[in-house]
Simulated scan of single mutants.
Amino acid sequence: MTIDAEKEPLLSRVAGADAPQMSRRLFVLAAPVILTGCVTTAEGIGAYGGVSDGRVTLPAMDTSGVNPRFLRQTVAYSGREAAGTIVVRPSERHLYFVTGRGTAIRYGVGVGRQGALWHGRAAVGRKASWPNWTPTANMIRNDPRNARYAGGMAGGIANPLGARALYLYRGSRDTMYRLHGTNEPRSIGLAVSSGCIRLFNHDIIDLHNRARIGTPVVVLPG
């Protein structure tokens, strides 16, 4: 069964939350990222092997059918964002973690479908490993089968949020948007979500390890 992992987009309403202390500084939306197109390091198949991750074993991912441009790799980067910034370009289906020195780690992503695209500035306010997933009321109305998870679905390989989730906040308020893994790796490169940004499980683990509470996130217009 296919389950839509993300929260319903809340463009004008955000829910209050007890978020960890984080930077409240707003980051100016930069001009579109300019890339040279030169790949300096291709992580390739070696980045997607089997992983023993606490109580869960993440199996190796078959990359043979994946467009190489959606595999994690280090690329030349000439945007103006500071090192440590996450930049999402929905039109490219790419997320960049800026490393500085003219480079960034680039990941393939799945993005919000038409009508569910969100853009703006936020920061990582919370991080979770193998997070629980709870469908919203709208998700249950749209697919009554989701009612079985009204009390929450435990984290694991079958969970729609995947191996990790980074929760996007503005100040102390949860925007209800996330960067997270997926139980549907074939959705990477597509516009299918309810607004959140999804990555391969191996990639969200890598990004989770790099990002910190307060890491700035810029999502450019789709």
Score class of each variant (00 low, 15 high):
R113L: 02
R113N: 08
Q114M: 10
G115H: 05
G115Q: 03
G115R: 08
G115K: 10
A116W: 11
A116P: 03
A116Y: 12
A116Q: 14
A116T: 15
L117N: 10
L117Y: 07
L117D: 10
L117Q: 13
L117W: 05
L117C: 06
L117A: 12
L117G: 09
H119Q: 06
H119A: 07
G120Q: 03
G120Y: 00
R121I: 09
R121H: 11
R121Y: 08
R121E: 00
R121V: 11
R121Q: 08
R121F: 00
R121A: 07
A122K: 10
A122T: 09
A123K: 07
A123C: 05
A123H: 11
V124G: 01
V124P: 01
G125K: 08
G125Y: 00
G125C: 01
R126S: 04
R126A: 07
R126N: 05
K127Q: 02
K127C: 02
A128I: 12
S129K: 15
S129W: 11
W130D: 04
W130M: 04
W130C: 13
P131C: 06
P131Y: 09
P131S: 08
N132G: 14
N132C: 11
N132L: 08
N132W: 11
N132Y: 14
W133A: 02
T134W: 02
T136N: 09
T136K: 13
T136M: 01
A137E: 15
N138W: 14
N138D: 13
M139E: 14
M139D: 13
M139N: 12
M139K: 15
I140F: 05
I140T: 11
I140K: 10
R141V: 13
R141C: 03
R141G: 09
N142S: 12
D143I: 07
P144N: 02
P144L: 03
P144W: 01
R145F: 09
